[in-house]
Structure formats: C-alpha cells, structure tokens
C-alpha cells in the first residue's frame, strides 16, 4: 500500500488576522504557520494503514521554502519521504493550481491511495482533493471517518450531515479526503525527529500552464451581522451585567 498524503501549511489557530496594504492577501510576515489540522489526521490515517498493510507513506506539499517545515514534521511522525513542489505565490493559487501541481508531482509514482484533509483552515476551498482525483483519473470519496482496505478495493465511511453516515466501496487507486477526528494523532518522538533528518525531501518545480480560476478582489475583516454588546469590567462585574441583560432585556432566563 503506497500512500501519498497531501499537506498544506496554514497560519496557526491563534493567528490574529492582518490584511496587507493592498487588501488582497494576509500580511505574511506576521504569520506563524503549522500543518492544516485535517491534513494532520490524513497523515495519521496513512501511517496507520501502512502499519497494517505495509508499503510507504510520502508527504507532499506545494508552497514556498517555509513548507519544508511541515514536511519535516510529517517525516518525524513516520512518513518515509517527502515531495516539495516549490511555489512562491501561494496567495494567487486556487485549488486548481494546487491540485494541478500535486497531480504532476505524484502521477508517475503510481500510488494506491492519496489522502488529504477535507479542507484547509486558510482558504477553505474544500476542492483540492477532489480536483486532484479528477486530474489523476482516480475514484474518490470525501469527508471520511474510517478506511478499510480489502485487496484492490477500499471501503470508507463517509460522514453525511446531521449525524448520518454511509459506507462506500470503490476500486483502488483512490483519493480520500479525511475528516478531523477520524483517529487520534501521534506526536513525533525524539527518535522520529532524528530519523527524519536522514529522510529525503525531493524538490520539484511548479509545472507550467496552471491558471487560477478565481481571483481575490478584496480581503477584509468580516462585517458584523449583529450588533454585539460587549460587556466590560472585572469578571464579577461583567457576569452581573450579563445576568441582568439576560433577565431584563433579553428575558431568556
């Protein structure tokens, strides 16, 4: 079972959003980055499948020099090697560009399975995995909560809305987009971190001819849909004011 895992590097969860002067992208220099959370679950699932069925796990990412960091983390957790598609302008890249780059990087490796997170915490397209499947000619399924390999077939548990699920079988090779919470993440061990230093990160150039199909005209702080009364003061004061509001103004308690 040879598995590729596609990982995106995104701003950390506690990042305070700041927009650049042009209002077209975030102010990159303020940002610390981490692995997109659903992609971390995809990596964990790949490592578990490898432990069960043998084979290899290859971590792939598209982006500037800094994405080598999330690839090194994936290697430290147990991925065997990594592919880094070098691409400077991620802000102008939509899911078509990223999926096109990933398809070119993994096509010749004849993977049985390609896993990635169901969406990214930055642009949140929720498209890359599915577009990648189409570009590779693979079957696919999305928002997956369990993966079972049965020789040349994969059976997956798809999450539907409102607490419903559905099992779907399809032939390998396949692309699966993984939902957060499918498993419990492992931490990199010191041994893993040391071993990662000897593992290969193969750098690949961005393929030519990939055009974004969408363009950000303006990026800005969300407009409030409600007038929020922000209650200030010490915790005790704020609590008293809130209770008064809920009792006397909103009348919900």
């Amino acid at each position: 079972m040879n598995i590729a895992v596609c990982i995106k590097q995104v701003p950390t969860r506690d990042w305070q959003p700041r927009v650049n002067d042009g209002g077209t992208w975030i102010r990159d220099r303020d940002v610390t980055f981490e692995t997109n959370e659903p992609d971390a679950y995809a990596l964990e699932e790949a490592l578990r499948l490898k432990e069960k069925h043998g084979g290899s796990v290859v971590a792939c990412s598209v982006g500037p020099e800094r994405v080598a960091q999330v690839l090194r983390e994936a290697l430290a957790r147990g991925a065997d090697r990594a592919i880094h598609v070098e691409h400077a302008s991620v802000e102008a890249s939509d899911a078509f560009v990223i999926a096109g780059a990933l398809a070119a990087a993994v096509r010749d490796e004849r993977f049985d399975l390609v896993l990635t997170g169901l969406q990214s915490d930055d642009q949140g397209f929720a498209q890359t995995g599915v577009v990648l499947a189409e570009r590779l000619g693979f079957a696919h399924a999305t928002i997956i909560m369990e993966v079972q390999i049965e020789s040349s077939t994969v059976r997956v548990k798809r999450e539907l809305e409102g607490g419903w699920f559905q099992w779907v079988a399809m032939p390998l090779p396949a692309v699966l987009t993984i939902q957060s919470g499918i498993n419990h993440l492992r931490y990199a061990t010191l041994k893993g971190i040391m071993a990662a230093k000897k593992k290969e990160i193969r750098k690949v150039a961005m393929p030519a001819g990939l055009a974004a199909r969408q363009h950000i005209v303006r990026l800005y702080a969300p407009q409030k849909v409600k007038r929020t009364e922000l209650i200030t003061g010490s915790p005790a004061e704020a609590a008293k004011t809130l209770v008064t509001r809920l009792r006397e103004t909103a009348r919900v308690i």
Partner: peptide
C-alpha cells in the same frame, strides 16, 4: 458579479471573481 466568501476560518471575508 463579485462573490463573497469566508476565508481563514471566518476570520476574514473575501470578495472573489471567477476567472475564465
């Protein structure tokens, strides 16, 4: 037409135009 969509987990909003 410009389309409005959340980005960065809803921390920011983007006005987006389709291309092509």
């Amino acid at each position: 037409l410009v389309f409005v969509r959340p980005m960065f987990q809803g921390k920011l909003t983007a006005d987006v135009r389709p291309q092509g």
